[in-house]
Nucleic acid binder design. Structure first.
Length: 544
RNA sequence: UGGGCUAUGGCCAAGUGGUUAAGGCAUCGGACUUUGACUCCGAGAUCGGUAGUUCAAAUCUACCUAGCCCAGCCA
């Protein structure tokens, strides 16, 4: 799928045509403090696809300017996710690669009288900043001399002060209606080991200062970010200008992507993992890229989904059905379609010979014959889906099995149900049916139509399997409620089912359509003697 | 009268003065069907509101309304 028309694409076209830039250079700048989720996929895909469309390039740059929150384990996870999506960064970089250069630029600002060391503590600074409707007032330290600031800043760098004791601030305008311009902090003191630079530094640049400079260092032309940075843009431009950067990058903002029934908050995702409400960041119910991968989503389904949602300056919420549709479209003709019974109900064909199993040749996928054929078994005892039987046909629309009703077992015979055998508790134990030898599939029989077609597996040859079905993690979307009270107790259900013999040697992440039941993938933990499948999505259904 | 941003069918989203206002998802009809799947037909908006400019406006102007973001030494 080609990236659709959007406002950023238009800007890039104009910039290329006007000669403002010779090449499109973008970057994806994750902070290595969490796993990437489907919301991040929009940023990744937009940056990479746009650059690719124009023959440009994209860097992966870890925004690691705050060592108290960041960790190299996240660096590896993020790299893996991007690689999985199929994108190859032109360069893999770290904000911390530029700490020396950034430090020099801070000194440059001091020398130009545009930055000063401030002794205000956090409470005082908040007080001096003013409010949304009232201007702030100048820090008492605002007019220190360049010489004094230079010495103080060097002392900061050399570890002469405690965390929080001093900051370096840009000298802009304490009465600006834009809070970001009220002398923002650009360096703070943090005595903690950094995952990349170790203990070399005890001062770290703030995002607003570091980010535009990093973009400029790398020759980024179009720096894409989300809407909430809109009123940081003037500050972004201020730093690029005042630091006299050779390359002048420009920031453009787009809206975040939300999906219905999906948790898109780093904090909540972390809480789910930390409090063991899920089995980790790659739990198949998680909207992390790692979780979606384990769930069985293909990278193409995710990319196509993102591209199909478009891009604008609106924070949008698209239906989760769109993601599901994208997966179905991707897999429909690509994967084998096989028989699996998730919630088995035993059926005995009373007029079929004992101890006999016949094998039937069947295409793996009618719509893609290249996938080949396999043999499916039929015999005296079979399993069908418990939900495919109701004693009394409820209405004319019911296209499954009922007492006295005849259906076709796909690729095999018509069967008619004659008797229901019950357990002591009144539940259905098994069904006694008869089959009609004349109705064998492929025989050309057309004397009568069955009341629908259902799938089955032959009992003696079927492979037992754990089949996991998922529902959304939360029961509602009221973000005000406590996470615990919103948890969906049915988000993970495991069934003891059976699959057809052709799945004997399946490997993790192989994908199938279980006929009439949805798309499934073989779980990472699946073994030859203990098959495990995860449902990716159900098939679309106009029933119910 | 703090600043900024946004407003096209149920959800996304093209469209930048002249088109019957693209497309996708969802929905509702219908055809087909050995998956109630797929596929194929068909159905739906006058563009937040009001007033203007113009031969002509979703596209320009003004005003209004609604929503989102900003007061971290987070990003």
């Amino acid at each position: 799928m080609e990236i659709t028309s959007n406002f950023i694409k238009s800007i890039m076209e104009e910039d290329l045509n006007s000669g403002k830039v010779n090449e499109i250079v973008t970057r994806f700048p994750p902070e290595p403090n969490a796993y990437l989720h489907i919301g991040h996929a929009r940023a990744i895909i937009t940056n990479f696809e746009l650059a690719r469309h124009f023959g440009g390039k994209t860097n992966l740059r870890f925004d690691d300017t705050n060592p108290v929150k960041e960790d190299s384990s996240f660096v590896e996870a993020i790299k893996k996710d991007i690689e999985w999506l199929g994108y190859k960064p032109a360069n893999i970089l770290f904000g911390s690669d530029y700490f020396d250069a950034t430090y020099e630029l801070a000194i440059k600002l001091i020398k130009k009288g545009l930055a000063y060391v401030c002794d205000l503590n956090p409470d005082e600074m908040r007080e001096y900043r003013g409010t949304l409707t009232t201007p702030g007032k100048d820090s008492p330290y605002r007019n220190r001399t360049v010489e004094e600031n230079l010495i103080l800043f060097e002392n900061m760098k050399n570890g002469k002060y405690q965390d929080g004791e001093k900051t370096l601030r840009a000298k802009i305008d304490m009465s600006s209606p834009n809070m970001n311009m009220r002398d923002p902090v650009i360096y703070r003191i943090i005595h903690i080991e950094h995952h990349n630079t170790g203990n070399k530094w005890c001062i770290y640049p703030m995002y607003d200062f570091a980010h535009p400079l990093q973009d400029a260092f790398e020759g980024v032309t179009h720096s894409l970010c989300s809407l909430e940075y809109d009123d940081h843009r003037v500050l972004y431009d201020w730093f690029v200008e005042k630091c006299e950067m050779e390359h002048v990058p420009h920031q453009y903002e787009f809206g975040r992507l939300n999906i219905t029934n999906t948790i898109m908050s780093k904090r909540y995702l972390k809480q789910l993992v930390d409090e063991k409400m899920v089995k980790g960041y790659d739990d198949p119910r998680m909207p992390t890229l790692a979780g979606l991968r384990r769930r069985g989503y293909t990278k193409d389904s995710i990319i196509n989904f993102i591209l199909s949602t478009g891009l604008s300056r609106i924070n949008s919420t698209v239906s989760s059905e769109m993601l599901e549709t994208s997966l179905r479209n991707d897999l429909n003709t690509k994967v084998k379609r096989v028989n699996a019974v998730i919630d088995p109900l035993k059926v005995i064909i009373i007029n079929y010979p004992d101890n006999n199993v016949e094998w039937i040749d069947v295409d793996f996928n009618n719509d893609n014959l290249d996938l080949g054929k396999r043999k499916i078994a039929f015999g005296k005892e079979i399993y069908i889906e418990r939900e495919d039987f109701i004693e009394e046909k409820p209405n004319k629309k019911w296209k499954r099995l009922s007492l006295g009703i005849e259906v076709r077992l796909m690729h095999a015979y018509f069967i008619k149900c004659n008797e229901v055998i019950y357990n002591e508790d009144g539940s259905i134990k098994e069904l006694h049916c008869t089959y009609d030898e004349l109705t064998k599939s492929g025989s050309g029989f057309d004397e009568r139509k069955p009341n629908g077609n259902i799938h089955f597996v032959e009992a003696s040859t079927a492979l037992p399997a754990d089949i996991n079905l998922f529902e959304p993690l939360l029961t509602d979307s009221d973000g005000k409620k406590d996470l615990f009270t919103r948890l969906n107790p049915n988000s993970w259900a495991t069934f003891k089912g059976f699959v057809e013999p052709s799945l004997k040697d399946t490997l993790p992440l192989e994908r199938f359509q279980f006929i009439r039941k949805g798309y499934f993938t073989t779980d990472y933990d699946s073994k030859k003697d203990r098959l495990i499948f995860n449902r990716i999505v159900e098939l679309k259904s106009s029933f119910n």
